[in-house]
Design a protein around this nucleic acid. Structure first.
Lengths: 148, 148
DNA sequence: TAAAAATAGTCCTGCAGTCGTACTAATTCA
DNA sequence: TGAATTAGTACGACTGCAGGACTATTTTTA
């Protein structure tokens, strides 16, 4: 008899599969010098620039970790540091052309994954899935803000 | 306007929240000498014993990694090695009383999480969520077997 | 059935990720 | 203005992780 897997584990399985596909697609497109952890941080960089602390929070890692990862990203040409004029303590991280290109590739792969999932589930169930996950976010996302 | 987060990311957020809660609950119950990676491996140990390679596959890590993690688990009293009589090359990993106790605590916390989620979503949406996730597993779980 | 190929696990080594502690510089508060 | 807070960094220690090479066993095959 099939053991009923915890809902959270089912999510983890699907999420991991998606992450693997994105990493694979990036690798195939020539972005093979970015690791998974670096990519997660990179995904949080806004076009206008983002503070290190914010990136750390988004990726759910400490600022120390973010600093270390960003140093590597910067060396690989995936991030630029510029001083924050509003606050002398802060540093803004800005994406480079290469960063934006990588993010674009990732988004395309993401869309493909969603399409595959939707094809497998059917649009109705896919819609229900998203609806449930978005609601769940209200109680599981430590950085959830309704207006965001 | 709210940026539509990828479905996979929504899953990751919820799954991580669940994992954090389980780790926290175990820690509170005195199982504070097991790390997350070790716990993931431990979760795969069957009562009758499980081969190292199988545990590695379940946790999606290499055999080398599994060996190292199991050495720590064994030292902490969470696993026992016994030779596999059917195959002289293989080693079976068996849970100890402490392992089973820890797994029991984890299961209880899991049930609590499911209950919280269900309360937030309502039973109908929760059912739909599980249904979609179970279907999705068919195309996202590299170790999925229908009869399991 | 002896030799070759495959398999299970381990050891070694090196590197990425992670964070606690402690620090500097800048800002905000009282 | 002095004290407390905040942003980020440097250092050091540890975990997780896997590739390559190795041993012991089993399975295949010629």
């Amino acid at each position: 008899m099939a053991p009923r897997l915890p809902t959270a584990l089912l999510m983890q399985i699907a999420a991991r599969s998606a992450e693997d596909r994105i990493v694979e697609a990036l690798r195939a497109a020539g972005f093979d010098d970015v690791t998974l952890a670096q990519g997660r941080l990179m995904a949080g960089i806004d076009v206008e620039g983002t503070r290190i602390g914010v990136l750390a929070a988004r990726a759910q890692v400490s600022k120390q970790t973010a600093t270390a990862l960003l140093a590597k990203l910067e060396r690989a040409g995936y991030a630029e540091r510029i001083p924050d004029l509003d606050d002398g303590r802060a540093t803004l991280i800005r994406p480079t052309a290469r960063t934006l290109e990588a993010i674009e590739h990732a988004r395309r792969q993401e869309a493909e994954i969603e399409a595959d999932w939707s094809a497998h589930l059917g649009p109705r169930r896919m819609k229900q899935l998203r609806e449930a996950l978005e609601m769940l976010r209200e109680i599981t996302d430590p950085y959830f803000t309704p207006m965001e």
